[in-house]
Simulated scan of single mutants.
Amino acid sequence: MKQAMHGGRLLVLTGPAGVGKGTVENALRKKHPEVWVSVSATTRDPRPGEVNGLNYWFMSEDEFIAKEAAGEFLETAVVHGMAHYGTPLKPVEEHLAEGTPTILEIDLQGARRVKETAKDLGLEVLSVFIAPPSFDELVRRLVGRGTETEAQRKRRLETAKVELAAESEFDVTIVNDNVDKAAEELWALIAKEYGISE
């Protein structure tokens, strides 16, 4: 595998809950471990099995706010009025500078903030929307996960409608009707973006 170009754009991956962003990303990284996915920072407590630096960078609220004030995040958000989340800027910049294919998986609001702040930082962004084959299929997947209450699922589906309506804001749409196919499409985008030839 040959890498011909340095400093491709940052790939910002977004899509509604239940669309399978993480599943597509895992399938991609299984075949292409050279792809780097940004690890977010959060002030929430680790869940059982979560590893610091692998799932998230876990930190205190004071530490997070100090880093935010120092401009160390590409974007930040307060989720459900409680925990802070953010994308550490330095590792993103370092991986892009090395020519490493770099992905940021984030929600719609975060993607919009990244587009705004990236311009000021001189970072170029390629925004990718992962879409379900249909809204009915998205409902089926969310119900099939069995990880949420009826009320939570209803709220997620309302959010998903808003997220789906924002698809036109993105540079590229990949329909996740087949995980391996979607991962291949994502890799084709990355290979083109970073000048990688097999």
Rank of each mutant, 00 (worst) to 15 (best):
K2G: 14
K2Y: 10
Q3H: 05
A4T: 15
L10T: 05
L11V: 13
L13E: 01
T14S: 15
G15A: 05
G15T: 08
P16T: 06
E25D: 15
A27I: 11
L28H: 02
R29E: 06
K30A: 15
H32I: 09
V35P: 07
W36L: 14
V37R: 08
S38D: 12
T42N: 00
T43W: 00
R44Y: 04
P46A: 01
P48S: 06
V51Q: 12
V51H: 08
G53R: 03
L54W: 09
L54A: 08
N55T: 11
W57V: 09
W57K: 02
F58C: 01
M59H: 00
M59F: 00
D62W: 00
E63K: 01
K67I: 00
E68R: 00
A70S: 01
A70L: 00
E72Q: 01
A77P: 10
H80F: 10
H80V: 14
M82K: 05
A83D: 03
H84D: 05
G86K: 01
G86W: 01
L89K: 03
P91A: 03
V92F: 04
H95Y: 08
L96H: 07
L96D: 12
T100I: 12
P101S: 04
D107N: 12
D107W: 12
A111D: 07
A111S: 11
R112L: 08
R112V: 09
V114S: 04
V114L: 03
V114P: 02
K119L: 07
E124D: 10
A131R: 08
A131I: 10
P132S: 07
S134K: 06
F135N: 13
L138I: 05
L138S: 08
R140Q: 13
R141N: 08
R141F: 09
L142D: 11
L142Q: 09
G144T: 13
E148F: 03
E150A: 14
A151E: 09
Q152M: 04
Q152V: 07
R153Q: 04
K154P: 13
R156E: 02
L157M: 08
L157E: 06
E158I: 04
T159Y: 10
K161H: 08
E163M: 09
L164D: 04
A165L: 10
A166P: 10
A166I: 07
D171R: 02
D171L: 03
D171N: 05
V172W: 06
I174M: 07
V175C: 07
D177C: 06
V179N: 15
V179W: 12
A183P: 15
E185P: 14
E185I: 10
L186E: 04
L186D: 01
L189D: 05
E193N: 15
E193R: 11
Y194G: 11
G195Y: 04
I196E: 06
S197P: 13
S197H: 11
E198Y: 14
